[in-house]
Amino acid sequence: SIVTKIISIVQERQNMDDGAPVKTRDIADAAGLSIYQVRLYLEQLHDVGVLEKVNAGKGVPGLWRLL
C-alpha cells in the first residue's frame, strides 16, 4: 500500500542520514506522488502516532520522523 511505502521511505532515509528527519518533498519524490497527496498521508500517520512532525510554520518545509 502507499502508506507502507511512505513508512519504508522515511525509515530508509532516516537510516541513511543518522536519524535525521525527512522532508515532505523528498518523501513525495521517492513515492512518485505530489507533495499534497503525501502530506495527507503523513498527517494521517501522525494522527495515529506513527510519525512526528519535527517542525511547523507557514512556508517551512515539513520534516518528519518515525516514532
Rank of each mutant, 00 (worst) to 15 (best):
S1F: 11
S1E: 12
S1P: 07
I2D: 04
I2L: 09
V3S: 07
V3T: 09
V3F: 15
V3E: 05
V3D: 02
V3Y: 15
V3K: 11
V3I: 14
T4A: 14
T4V: 11
K5E: 05
K5D: 04
K5Y: 08
K5M: 12
K5A: 07
I6Q: 00
I6C: 03
I7N: 00
I7G: 00
I7F: 05
I7P: 01
I7W: 04
S8I: 09
S8V: 07
I9R: 01
I9A: 07
I9E: 01
I9S: 04
V10K: 00
V10L: 14
V10A: 02
V10D: 00
V10H: 00
Q11I: 11
E12A: 10
E12G: 06
E12S: 11
E12N: 10
R13K: 13
R13S: 03
R13F: 12
R13N: 02
Q14P: 02
Q14N: 06
Q14D: 03
Q14H: 09
Q14L: 04
N15R: 11
N15P: 02
N15S: 12
M16G: 08
M16A: 13
M16F: 08
M16Y: 08
M16E: 06
D17Y: 15
D17R: 14
D17K: 13
D17L: 15
D17N: 15
D17G: 15
D17E: 13
D18N: 14
D18I: 07
D18P: 10
D18C: 15
G19T: 04
G19Q: 06
G19K: 06
G19C: 10
G19M: 06
A20I: 06
P21A: 13
P21D: 02
P21R: 03
P21G: 15
V22S: 05
V22K: 02
K23R: 11
K23G: 09
K23C: 10
K23Q: 08
K23A: 13
T24E: 14
T24V: 03
T24N: 01
T24H: 01
T24P: 05
T24S: 04
R25L: 06
R25W: 07
R25C: 07
R25M: 08
R25H: 07
D26T: 09
I27F: 02
I27R: 01
A28G: 03
A28M: 03
A28Q: 02
A28D: 05
D29F: 11
D29H: 11
D29N: 11
D29W: 08
A30D: 09
A30F: 04
A30Y: 05
A30Q: 07
A31D: 01
A31H: 01
A31R: 01
A31C: 12
G32F: 03
G32E: 05
G32Q: 06
G32A: 06
L33M: 12
L33A: 02
L33Y: 03
L33E: 02
S34F: 15
S34D: 09
S34I: 05
S34N: 09
S34C: 08
I35S: 04
I35H: 05
I35N: 15
I35L: 10
I35C: 08
I35A: 05
Y36H: 12
Y36F: 12
Y36N: 11
Y36C: 12
Q37C: 13
Q37G: 04
Q37D: 08
Q37F: 12
V38E: 00
V38G: 03
V38F: 01
V38L: 04
V38S: 03
V38H: 00
V38N: 00
R39P: 00
R39W: 11
R39Q: 12
L40Q: 10
L40Y: 13
L40M: 11
Y41H: 05
Y41E: 01
Y41M: 07
Y41K: 02
Y41G: 03
L42Q: 00
L42V: 02
L42E: 00
E43Q: 09
E43D: 08
Q44E: 10
Q44P: 02
Q44V: 13
L45I: 06
L45K: 02
L45Y: 00
H46A: 15
H46G: 04
H46K: 11
D47T: 13
D47V: 13
D47M: 13
D47I: 12
D47P: 00
V48R: 13
V48F: 14
V48G: 07
V48C: 15
G49P: 06
G49T: 01
G49R: 04
G49N: 03
G49F: 03
V50D: 06
V50I: 13
V50F: 05
L51A: 01
L51R: 00
E52H: 04
E52F: 03
E52R: 04
E52S: 06
E52V: 09
K53E: 07
K53M: 07
K53Q: 06
V54E: 02
V54Y: 05
V54W: 03
V54R: 01
V54N: 01
V54G: 01
N55C: 14
N55L: 07
N55Q: 09
N55P: 09
N55T: 09
N55E: 08
A56S: 10
G57A: 07
G57D: 08
G57E: 08
K58L: 10
K58A: 12
K58M: 09
K58E: 13
K58C: 14
K58T: 11
G59E: 06
G59R: 06
G59A: 06
V60R: 12
V60F: 11
V60N: 13
V60A: 14
V60E: 15
P61L: 11
P61S: 14
P61V: 10
P61K: 11
G62E: 15
L63Y: 10
L63C: 08
L63I: 04
L63P: 02
L63N: 06
W64T: 01
W64R: 01
W64A: 02
R65W: 13
R65P: 02
R65I: 12
L66N: 01
L66R: 01
L66I: 13
L67G: 09
